[in-house]
């Protein structure tokens, strides 16, 4: 068994986390029925950091992200987010935590009977007292940010997969969250839009104290946004390095992964 090339210490202390650690997984295990998905995942994301997660399909990247927002609960190990122990968090605290967190789902997850504008506006309509024209202004601004100023009345069923994803991104950003979790923000986009989404993520991440976790398969995304990159394989971290060292690393698992990946 090769030793992982990792900066996160193999053993993180359990118990309360320092204030500048926004996301911490300690030896997290998660299985669905007999299928072990997370097998001792340990990682840290610091305040203001952009952490990129790479890894083969089905290795548990989306599952990891879902734990960080309380959509799933680990079987064992600890998950800490913004100082909360996610296995003990109270419903009111979780709701508050989520209001400061943006989440882009892998397939966009737009509400299928709301049009694009209402989808993007949903968090503000439901959880703020802003007047509708103020909300509309913000929706317009976010749709422009994701290069979709012209879709407004379209229904999710009428737009392409890549557009759905970008609308989902606009919805994730509408509350100006401090922690943003992106599940493959640029999969299925053409190279030009994909690069502009990378630049958008990098720009947002430069904002004061914004912490981002980004799942991607694209080296271009790593180059543009990453402060640190981890490679997940079979439910645990096998490589954890800054982007230039990550791309230059000769760790055998990483070479195999990047070697089979074009781009």
């Amino acid at each position: 068994m090769e030793r992982p090339a990792t900066r996160t210490p193999d053993v993180l202390p359990s118990g309360p986390v320092p204030e500048d650690v926004i996301v911490r997984f300690v030896d997290v295990h998660k299985a669905f029925g007999k299928k072990q998905v997370l097998t001792g995942l340990t990682l840290d994301a610091m305040r203001g950091e952009t952490l990129v997660l790479m890894g083969p399909s089905g290795t548990g990247k989306s599952v990891t992200l879902r734990h960080a927002i309380g959509l799933m609960r680990q079987d064992s190990g600890d998950v800490w987010v913004s100082g909360h122990d996610m296995s003990r968090i109270k419903p009111a605290e979780l709701s508050e935590l989520r209001k400061h967190t943006g989440y882009l789902f892998q397939e966009g997850a737009l509400i299928n009977w709301l049009n694009v504008a209402d989808n993007v506006a949903l968090p503000l309509i439901e959880n703020s007292d802003l007047p509708r024209d103020e909300i509309d202004d913000r929706v317009r601004e976010k749709l422009k940010l994701v290069h979709l100023p012209e879709v407004w009345h379209e229904m999710p069923g009428e737009i392409s997969g890549g557009m759905k994803k970008r609308v989902g991104l606009a919805r994730a950003l509408i509350t100006e969250p401090k922690v943003i979790l992106y599940d493959e923000p640029n999969a299925g986009l053409d190279p030009e839009i994909s690069q502009s989404i990378n630049e958008l993520i990098a720009e947002i991440a430069d904002g004061l104290g914004v912490t981002s976790l980004v799942i991607t398969h694209m080296v271009s995304c790593v180059r543009t946004v990453a402060d640190r990159v981890v490679l997940l394989d079979e439910g645990k971290v096998v490589v954890d390095l800054p982007p230039d060292e990550f791309l230059a690393s000769d760790h055998p698992r990483l070479v195999r992964f990047l070697g089979t990946d074009p781009d």
Binding site: R66, I69, L71, S95, R98, K99, T101, Y103, F105, Q106, E107, A109, L110, I111, N112, W113, L122, P123, E126, N127, G168, R171
Partner: peptide
């Protein structure tokens, strides 16, 4: 069928993440 479609396409998860109460909504 409508709610089932929402369940399998992560729309219910999205409502949860957006702090929209699905019983009320």
């Amino acid at each position: 069928a409508e709610l089932g479609t929402m369940a399998v396409s992560d729309e219910l998860a999205a409502l949860e993440v957006l702090s929209v109460d699905r019983t009320s909504y």
